[in-house]
């Protein structure tokens, strides 16, 4: 990553906040730190393992500074707002917001997930499925299918409440191990940088399609069953809502099929 960005964020955070880079996207860079932005140290307890996420949108040199500032503010605010709204919806799991400085494009979030055993990587859905796709593992382990069903439920809850994710890849689904049951994983949706409030079936259909493609491209041998489990979980949310839910579900799944067909056509031409 460009030294400029590191210098910029280090200057902003000061030397009191040590940071470790964990991800660099087109839009934002993500760091972890063990320093809380405002809670006094002795109040957090001396759990030295505690980590926080800092998501920083660096200024873009190619944009006019005023436009850049307002875009950064707008996007940081939009992501914060969506996370705040989703936090209040029952059973939806997203990271908690610790702080948001929209003027500098910086959001602090609760750190979710853990390192998977045997160096299988960070516990997002992609690594989790890979772990179970390895030789000697059972790709259709009930734990896997249950987790995928829960992933579907999270997406279902999101859509039922008229929110769309906008970039629903298997890396943007982080699995958090249940403290009471190590074989149970609760999916959390992260990265609402492209999220929106939307009641449009098209947006929701596209969300489902993006997730389906993500599973297909990295776990192709098992994708059919995996995607089925996701759709079952997704549907269960709508089926819980009676007549109105069923109607919306049918509409949505029809659109999903349309989006899929369009995608297939495009790939045949392209």
């Amino acid at each position: 990553m460009s030294q400029k960005i590191v210098d910029k964020v280090s200057e902003y955070l000061t030397s009191n906040i040590p940071i470790k880079l964990i991800s660099q996207g087109a839009e934002a860079v993500v760091f972890t730190t063990n320093v809380h932005p405002y809670l006094p140290k002795d109040q957090i307890g001396d759990d030295s393992d505690v980590q926080y996420i800092i998501k920083y949108r660096p200024p873009k040199e190619y944009r006019h500074p005023d436009i850049d500032k307002s875009l950064t503010k707008h996007r940081t605010l939009s992501e914060t707002r969506i996370l705040a709204k989703l936090y209040q919806i029952k059973d939806i799991h997203v990271p908690k917001i610790i702080a948001s400085d929209v003027f500098n494009g910086c959001i602090w979030l609760e750190f979710l997930g853990e390192e998977l055993p045997n160096n299988a990587g960070f516990s997002n859905l992609k690594h989790f499925l890979w772990m179970y796709n390895k030789d000697g593992a059972n790709a259709y382990d009930p734990i896997v299918l249950r987790t995928l069903y829960e992933v579907g439920r999270q997406v279902g809850l999101l859509h039922w409440n008229d929110y769309c994710h906008g970039d629903l890849t298997t890396s943007n689904i982080v699995l958090v191990r249940d403290i009471h049951n190590e074989n149970s994983w609760q999916p959390h949706l992260i990265d609402f940088g492209l999220g929106s409030i939307s009641s449009m079936v098209e947006d929701k259909g596209v969300d489902l399609y993006v997730l389906e493609r993500a599973i297909l491209s990295t776990h192709s041998a098992y994708a059919e069953r995996y995607n089925k489990a996701i759709i079952e979980g997704f549907s269960s949310v709508y089926k819980n809502e009676g007549e109105a839910g069923l109607k919306k579900l049918n509409e949505l799944l029809n659109r999903f099929e349309e989006v899929r067909l369009r995608g297939r056509k495009r790939s045949m031409i392209g």
Binding site: L77, A84, Y87, K96, I97, V102
Partner: peptide
């Protein structure tokens, strides 16, 4: 408490 923290971050923005 978390819901209040959220509101505090977003006031007036």
């Amino acid at each position: 408490s978390q819901a209040l923290v959220n509101a505090i971050q977003l006031r007036g923005l």
